[in-house]
Amino acid sequence: MRASRYMIFLYAAMIGVPLLLLIYSILTFAGISAEIVYLRILIAAGLIIYCISAAIEVYSHRRAAAAKGVFPVSKGEEHLDSGRSKGREVKFKVARFDPKDGKMKEYIYAVKADRFTTVLDALLKIKSKQDATLSFRYSCRMGVCGSCGMVINGKPSLACETTVFSAAKGAGEISVQPMRANPLLTGLVTDFDDFFAKHKEVKPTLFRKDETEKLEAKEAYNQDAKETAEYLPYSYCIMCGLCMDACPVVNTNPDFLGPQALSQAYRYHMDSRDEMGDERLTSIDKLTGAWGCEFAGACSRACPKGVDPASAIQLLKADIVKNEAGDIF
């Protein structure tokens, strides 16, 4: 894990404060009160150091992520003939990656849009009428296939679910960039290989001891509506990658499994039909797993399907601790 230089204070405080508290309670227990005043001051100082360094840590992550998000963009082409279709003209600034020289270039297009036009519709209009070399992913255009994630006006969004007017607001201008968390391929297209590998790493499969029964099903497993509700909120993930794009930790530490994979680990972990036991939990009990999350909550805000990966990860941490506590006692 790539730690910033303030991390040393954070860790010192994390270890120091509980240690001091322990000494404090021993001293109190032993009836020694003279040193306690100094200890209280020390503990308070430790807590202040902890808070400040944690804040700096989160801030530096975000700044690094933001810095990564601002691509050095050089000028590309301008296509300002939007055709004669009905509607209001909106200017699109599209930051495209060029695999030939590895640089980002800004292309400018004008598109006529009405109140129904989505950013995806606009990009398709650009591709079909103005510039066929613009590459981007798309398929269902109804927010369920997860193809068209990109950064629209600085916000990780699905192009098919974002109407041009809502994105343009008063400005009459829309900026579009590729997602930042994945390596760039071309245009607005990024490479999902690592993303898929991380998903696979958390064993996102309903595990059953009886494999044959699984495929040759005789009866449905027992699960009531309440048990379904335990994992249902986390099962809406369309694997679009927007939560990963928003996550400050993913953007500074590429090894972090990230909110998508971890939320899916939780989804299968909580399914009452699953018989994997602790294996899935153990596999994510590491700094690049559940413990990598700093609970910035950006993933949950970015998710277009209302999945709350941030809560899933904290619940995973709680279950890991519960398990380990169970092992000790």
Binding site: L206, R208, L215, E216, A220
Partner: peptide, 22 residues
């Protein structure tokens, strides 16, 4: 019918009613 049960077995969150019936 057995296909619906197969999908239960691989993780589809079927809407369920009383007593967990699909």
């Amino acid at each position: 019918p057995s296909e619906i049960k197969f999908f239960d077995h691989i993780g589809v969150p079927w809407n369920r009613g009383d007593g967990g019936k699909i």
